[in-house]
Amino acid sequence: TEDARKEAKKIIDNGGSPDEAAKFIKKYGLSEDQARELVKRAL
């Protein structure tokens, strides 16, 4: 979702790792793979 993508970008912009961002956005109901893909797109 757009919200999850924004959250991921915010985490990374604040110095978080892509892994942290992926873990965080899994709470939106995404699978591990979906979360990682979304983080990649957010970069």
Rank of each mutant, 00 (worst) to 15 (best):
T1W: 15
T1S: 11
T1R: 11
T1L: 15
T1F: 15
E2Y: 08
E2L: 10
E2Q: 09
E2S: 10
D3Y: 12
D3M: 15
A4K: 06
A4E: 03
A4H: 04
A4W: 12
R5I: 15
R5L: 15
R5P: 04
K6E: 11
K6V: 10
K6N: 10
K6S: 09
K6Q: 11
E7T: 09
E7L: 10
A8P: 03
A8K: 00
A8Y: 06
A8L: 11
A8R: 00
K9G: 05
K9Q: 11
K9F: 09
K9P: 03
K10W: 13
K10N: 08
I11Y: 07
I11L: 07
I11E: 03
I12H: 03
D13Q: 12
D13M: 13
N14A: 14
N14D: 10
N14Q: 13
G15W: 05
G15M: 02
G16V: 02
G16T: 03
G16W: 11
S17A: 05
S17C: 00
S17G: 04
P18V: 12
P18F: 14
P18M: 11
D19V: 09
D19L: 09
E20M: 08
E20Y: 11
E20I: 05
E20L: 08
A21Y: 12
A21S: 03
A22E: 08
A22N: 05
K23G: 09
F24S: 11
I25H: 01
I25P: 00
I25T: 02
K26T: 15
K26P: 02
K27L: 05
K27E: 06
Y28H: 04
G29V: 00
G29H: 03
G29R: 00
L30G: 01
L30A: 01
S31I: 00
E32P: 06
E32R: 00
Q34N: 04
Q34P: 00
Q34F: 06
Q34L: 08
Q34D: 09
A35W: 14
A35T: 05
R36W: 15
E37P: 00
E37N: 05
L38N: 00
L38D: 04
L38A: 07
L38G: 00
V39K: 00
V39E: 05
V39A: 04
V39W: 02
K40M: 14
K40N: 13
K40D: 13
K40H: 12
R41I: 14
A42Q: 09
A42M: 15
A42S: 05
A42F: 14
L43C: 13
L43S: 05
L43D: 05
L43Y: 08
